[in-house]
């Protein structure tokens, strides 16, 4: 699994951090998404999928 994040689209709601805190963070300046683990380990994939699903702005995708 590989995570792609579009910080131009991101609105900094923080849902990804809330859902998968080890994988995502938010920038100190504007709150937009920072991907800590672009290729997350298998045991995080479920949480990452949930994070993609709940993201309000559609900033996250996985391939």
């Amino acid at each position: 699994m590989r995570i792609k994040a579009d910080t131009d689209v991101c609105i900094g709601a923080g849902m990804c951090v809330l859902t998968a805190a080890d994988v995502f963070d938010q920038s100190e300046e504007d709150g937009t998404v920072v991907v800590l683990l672009p290729e997350p380990p298998a045991d995080k994939e479920g949480a990452v999928r949930r994070a993609v699903q709940v993201c309000p702005s559609g900033a996250l995708s996985i391939s």
Binding site: G12, V17, A21, Q26, E28, G31
Partner: peptide, 12 residues
Amino acid sequence: LRRLLTGQFTVR
């Protein structure tokens, strides 16, 4: 506007 504010309301 929102970009100026989101940094203030992050989870951290």
